[in-house]
């Protein structure tokens, strides 16, 4: 198991956002976490990344207990998140943003190699390399966030709603890239409201409802599960 979350609860002040959730991600997988707005998907990501402390439970990464580990050290262990929405550095150029993704690394040759790979994956970013991140369109910012996370060469890539607010064409494109990244050897935990696409691409998936995991299975199973269909795929 690359990532093992066991019975994790998380509080925002007095509001409990996660009620003892457990999930696992195996090496090489794409695992999807789907759920409605406010279900606690981003909160789960924050707990894994370590930018919010958990109230109870354990998080293990590559066999090591990282529950209490500082967020920046988790990045060094190979865990990197592309945050939800506008999580890029608005005043930095595209290249500077990507460079921040490699902040924990010192191997110049490897960084240059990954930069070439990211610009190859996202030709739009290559065109706008000198432009300030804040002046990019929503889709370009989303791509920048994914590319920046890749620059840390993570073992596990956490993607929080990479398709949010994008035009259908772009959604298709970003999901294709996600599959491509996975085939190149990066394990992915994918949070999505766009359940159709996420389930179609994922090896396995979990359904989150008000801070609890209510269902899990392979992507295809859940895609055909009647209750999932009704609640998340807009099919009666």
């Amino acid at each position: 198991m690359l990532l093992e979350i066991e019975d994790v609860s998380l509080l925002y002040g007095r509001i409990q956002a996660l009620h003892g959730i457990s999930l696992t991600v195996d090496e090489g997988e794409i695992v999807a976490l789907i759920g409605a707005n406010g279900a606690g998907k981003s909160t789960t990501m924050r707990a894994i990344s370590g930018i919010r402390p958990v109230a109870s439970g354990t998080i293990k990464f590559a066999g090591e207990d990282i529950t209490k580990l500082r967020a920046d050290l988790r990045v060094r262990r190979g865990l990197c998140q592309a945050p939800e929405g506008r999580g890029i550095f608005p005043g930095m150029s595209v290249l500077e943003n990507l460079d921040m993704g490699a902040y924990t690394r010192r191997d110049k040759a490897g960084i240059a190699q990954d930069l070439a790979r990211v610009l190859d994956l996202f030709p739009r970013l290559a065109e706008r390399r000198k432009q300030a991140g804040g002046t990019l369109s929503g889709g370009e910012q989303q791509m920048l966030a994914v590319g920046r996370a890749l620059m840390s060469r993570p073992k596990l890539l956490l993607l929080d709603e990479p398709s949010m607010g994008l035009a259908p064409m772009l959604i298709q494109q970003i999901f294709t890239i996600i599959t491509e990244i996975n085939q190149q050897g990066t394990t992915i935990l994918l949070v999505e409201q766009n359940a159709q696409q996420a389930l179609a691409r994922a090896h396995r998936a979990y359904v989150l409802e008000t801070g609890r995991i209510v269902k899990s299975g392979t992507g295809t199973d859940l895609l055909h599960d009647p209750s999932v269909k009704e609640a998340y795929l807009g099919v009666a």
Binding site: S49, G50, I51, R70, A71, D72, V75, R76, C80, Q81, P83, G87, I88, F89, P90, G91, M92, E96, D99, M100, G101, Y103, T104, R148, A149, S152
Partner: peptide, 19 residues
């Protein structure tokens, strides 16, 4: 670079491994 990233988006800075 670390300072600027913190100023621009502290959460994102942390997610990129900046202490």
């Amino acid at each position: 670079r670390a300072w600027i990233s913190i100023r621009e988006d502290e959460d994102a800075a942390q997610l990129m491994g900046v202490p």
